[in-house]
Design a protein around this nucleic acid. Structure first.
Length: 946
DNA sequence: GCGATTTA
DNA sequence: TAAATCGC
């Protein structure tokens, strides 16, 4: 096709694309070695290059809002992300993006005083008249109003979703309308917070669609409001004027003062050298290759142009005369595949060999082959994400980039076990490094099928967690970021979440093979990237000696589960229900109206509008009344209703979150609750407990405490609870070498009272309860990295009083203050802080110009080493206890970890020796000057033991 | 302060 | 999606 005939113009909505790119990477920002956040630049450039590669536009232009960049960015942040600070990364990005566009010879458009939308609208209309097909490149649905036969929306794909092109038909279908122009009416009716369009009161998406069907336009609706009824009628009529205004606001102008100069938009080759210069400066390496390919490759879309490259999978056939000697060749026929690294390639574009291996003979050959390898990556496919109820569907293996095997397993458990038996030698061979993503899952599954994985382990998810604790660690995500490769999404195979979702087993064998093999392949490639990085960052010990062994301990704890007193919970649920009913009656009586007590919004309106309890009631950021506990607490004297509300809230929480939810989580087979300890969610290094969360079982209130009583030991056993006393404060003293605090601990003093005595300059014996409590709050504030502001909020002190208190605290513990300053300096200089075991926390915001953001990073610089070190130490203790219990052949089982506490179930006759073992291991897990003290309790249940 | 969970 | 509340 000659260029004259090919008239396809792509108009890129620059800011929308920049923001989109930035927020796509928000949890894993791209940083240069100097700490510059290049997420926005990367996101934009990547989308741009991807667009050129895929579509080969004949004409292309990028449209900015000009002259008021800062106003525009402020708008976007406020509405789009609900954040008060403007992301610095975006402001930094703009000049770079302009340089890149200039080097790429791509024209930049904009008209002062007009929004980018209007410029795009104007050019699109003019280009259409000139015979162009126009694509408006934007994620913004407002542009749907401009869609015609020749003007379409081009919504770039991101992870999981493919490119979406919205033409007339798609727009009609999406909004259930007859003409794309009606999108304006749609927006005018329902409003749009992002663009500050008010809309009609009481009209949301659903109602707007209904109105459009019925009335066609907002004007027609407003003329016929008599057809409506009830509240809706009132609301719509009352806001009619705003509706008309909204229509004006929602309309994209198509006559901005700008000409369509088609020659200017011709897509030319970039000045590669110049682009490279900019990319080098901000350390984009792969992107340059992608850019080069985008312009130099011939086909518009390699996947379509070259069908030979689509995925190959084949069955491994055993030759008829196969003897033991035919062996390995079948598995060695795949040499040195060059990977095509186009921008974010997919399975269709990469060379690979994925094979399924379903014959026992072939499986044995595969195992023999695996046994020759030093490092093998594997993955299991199951019918469920819950290990306890999951059935194995298949296993995949990879030990070389681009090469993977899939072993399907029979639905019949005995047959499956036979196949698994073939692979046992591999799993049990110590010398092979076994790699998987989220290995704990596979470890548990295989254990339930009688396989105990041995030897060194490598979990790519945990590896990434150590490299970047704050980031996301999903395999698909990591693949896109580190391999520039988009794996097949599980949803394309088994459908979206919901009742219609298939089980993996229901997919056909070839589909299973592609998906499973790809997972193993991708994980292997991630291993190749992460392993050297761990070494480089000195994280190998933490990884191989702490996190990976801990993974096994956690797997065992999760499989063990904990026993609950179901009968008690059942009765307590009934009791709470009755109490709640009574409280509700009382509350309705006192306010003279019935409403939904579980809706903070309704409660706020009752308290502050109807009852006028506080003329200056605080609002939340979305404008409703705040009714959180601390706020209600301040109103106790205002009205007798408040205590009832507080009590209702407490009981409601207890009932829904614990008393009713826990029994529902009991396993049908072993009648125990199996939580999941996530090793990669808390950025500080702590664990997190999910499904259910057993790390927040109540303890503060009497009624709440009773729930701990429902965590029971089974017949003939006892619960042992062992917790570190003040471990964080002890570590603060230890790490900062703060003599005043160290001595207090060495003398076995009550640390909060001791702090109070020093803080207020009075003898220890004279410290009052209030003083101790204040000192305790400050101690906690330090431990949790609270700001002075938050401390003031919590203590009820004024901000300056809180500041004074903190200053006095620093004077009391000068070395501590010194250490804190040092941490912040360290973070500023090298970009991270670390724990006693070298666990890192990167603080990219430490040099931010925004004091809120920077303050946050500064508190993290102090808090992360402390909380993280405590996490390190209990992790060591857990590993050592697990080993010792095993060595001494004790039947005592570790059940739960609650940050500074461990819970065990122990046969009565073992309790004494176990207790001693646990205490010793915990107290000696890490050598310190400050004694680590552990308090141990024993009982029939958790309440008694604690 | 963080993380999990429930509810509207 | 936001608010509230539980733990450490």
């Amino acid at each position: 096709m000659s260029k004259d005939q090919d008239k396809r113009l792509y108009l890129i909505d620059a800011y929308a694309m920049i923001f989109r790119g930035y927020y796509a990477l928000i949890r894993n920002p791209r940083l240069t070695s100097k700490g510059l956040d290049t997420s926005a630049i990367f996101g934009f450039s990547n989308s741009l290059i991807e667009l050129i590669r895929r579509e080969k536009p004949s004409h292309l232009a990028v449209v900015f809002d000009i002259g008021k960049e800062n106003v525009r960015t402020a708008d976007y942040t406020e509405y789009k992300a609900n954040r008060s600070e403007t992301p610095e990364a975006i402001q930094i990005a703009i000049p770079y993006i302009h340089r890149i566009l200039e080097a790429m010879h791509i024209p930049v458009l904009g008209v002062e005083g007009y929004e980018a939308d209007d410029v795009i609208g104007t050019i699109a209309c003019k280009a259409e008249k000139a015979g162009y097909n126009v694509f408006m490149v934007t994620p913004d649905k407002d542009f749907a109003q401009l869609v015609t036969e020749n003007i379409k929306i081009y919504k770039p794909g991101n992870k999981g979703s493919d490119v979406e092109i919205l033409g007339v038909e798609e727009v009609k279908q999406k909004y259930g309308i007859e003409d794309p122009k009606q999108v304006i009416d749609f927006l005018a009716m329902m409003g749009d917070a992002v663009d500050n369009i008010p809309g009609l009161d009481g009209v949301g998406e659903k109602t707007a669609m209904k109105f459009l069907k019925e009335f066609g336009s907002i004007e027609n609706l407003l003329e016929n409001t008599h057809q409506l009824k009830g509240k809706l009628k009132e609301k719509v009529e009352a806001s009619a004027e705003r509706g008309i205004l909204s229509k004006k606001l929602a309309t994209i102008i198509c006559d901005a003062p700008i000409d369509f100069d088609e020659d200017k938009y011709d897509l030319e080759d970039p000045d590669f050298e110049k682009v490279r210069e900019v990319f080098d400066e901000i350390e984009f390496r792969r992107l340059y290759e992608n850019l080069y390919r985008a312009f130099k490759s011939e086909a518009a879309d390699p996947a379509i142009a070259d069908p030979g490259k689509i995925s190959r999978y084949e069955k491994v056939n055993i030759p008829k005369d196969a003897s033991g000697t035919v062996q390995l060749d079948l598995f060695a026929n795949f040499e040195d595949l060059e990977q095509a690294t186009s921008t974010k390639s997919t399975i269709a574009e990469n060379d690979h060999l994925y094979q399924f291996v379903d014959q026992p003979k072939a499986q044995k050959m595969l195992v023999n082959n695996l046994l020759q390898q030093q490092t093998v990556c594997f993955d299991t496919e199951t019918t469920s994400l819950n290990e306890m109820e999951a059935e194995l569907v298949g296993m995949s293996f990879s030990y070389k980039k681009g090469l993977a095997y899939y072993v399907p397993l029979s639905e019949n458990r005995d047959e499956a076990l036979q196949t698994i038996e073939i692979f046992k030698p591999f799993f049990e061979k110590e010398s092979i490094l076994k790699v998987a993503h989220n290995l704990k899952f596979d470890y548990k599954i295989l254990r339930l099928y009688g396989v105990e994985i041995k030897g060194n382990l490598f979990d790519t998810m945990i590896a990434h967690y150590l490299l970047n604790p704050e980031g996301r660690h999903g395999m698909d995500y990591l693949s896109e970021i580190y391999l520039n490769y988009q794996p097949v999404s599980i949803e394309t195979i088994i459908g979206k979440k919901g009742k219609n979702q298939l089980s993996f087993r229901e997919a056909d064998l070839q589909t299973q093979t592609i998906y499973a093999a790809e997972d193993a392949d991708v994980t292997f490639q991630l291993y190749q990237i992460f392993a050297p990085q761990l070494k480089k960052e000195n994280l190998e010990d933490l990884f191989y000696k702490v996190e990976m062994p801990l993974m096994e301990v956690l797997a065992k704890m999760e499989l063990e589960g904990v026993s609950l007193d179901e009968a008690w919970l059942k009765q307590e649920s009934i009791d709470l229900e009755n109490d709640l009913k009574q409280l509700e009656t009382k509350i309705f009586e006192l306010c003279g109206e019935e409403f939904n007590m579980n809706s903070p919004r309704q409660l706020g309106e009752i308290l502050f509008e109807k009852m006028q309890l506080d003329p200056k009631a605080k609002k939340t950021k979305t404008g409703q009344y705040a009714t959180s506990e601390d706020i209600l607490q301040k109103l106790v004297s205002k009205h007798e209703i408040i205590p009832y509300i507080l009590e209702y809230r407490t009981y409601q929480k207890l009932k829904s979150t614990y008393v009713d939810a826990l029994p529902a989580q009991i396993d049908k087979d072993d009648h125990r609750v199996h939580t999941n300890f996530s090793q990669t969610t808390a950025a500080t290094g702590r664990l997190a407990s999910v499904n259910p969360n057993l790390q927040n079982i109540p303890i503060r209130t009497l009624r709440g405490q009773q729930i701990r009583g429902a965590f029971v030991a089974t017949e003939g056993k006892k619960i042992i609870s062992a917790d570190y006393s003040q471990i964080e404060l002890r570590l603060i003293a230890e790490i900062s070498d703060e003599t005043n605090m160290i001595q207090a601990f060495q003398n076995g003093e009550d640390i909060h009272a001791s702090t109070a005595s020093k803080l207020f300059g009075i003898p220890l014996e004279e410290v009052t309860k209030t003083q101790r409590s204040q000192a305790k709050t400050v101690n906690f504030g330090i431990v949790y990295g609270q700001s002075a502001f938050a401390l003031a909020e919590q203590t009820g002190l004024s901000r300056s009083e809180a500041k004074q208190m903190i200053d006095a605290y620093y004077e009391t513990y000068p070395k501590l203050k010194e250490w804190m300053t040092e941490q912040v300096h360290k973070a500023r200089k090298i970009g991270y802080v670390e724990t006693v075991l070298g666990r890192k926390r990167h603080l990219k915001d430490i040099n931010s110009n925004n004091f809120v953001v920077r303050g946050h990073a500064e508190r993290n610089a102090v808090n992360a080493p402390i909380q993280g070190s405590a996490a390190d130490i209990i992790k060591i203790a857990m590993i050592n206890i697990d080993r010792k219990l095993d060595e001494e052949n004790l039947e005592t089982k570790m059940l739960l970890q609650v940050h500074d506490e461990l819970l065990f179930e122990s046969p009565v006759e073992e309790v004494q020796s176990a207790t001693e073992l646990i205490r010793t291991q915990m107290e000696s897990a890490f050598e310190t000057k400050v004694p680590l003290v552990v308090e141990v309790g024993v009982g029939k249940n958790w309440l008694e033991a604690h």
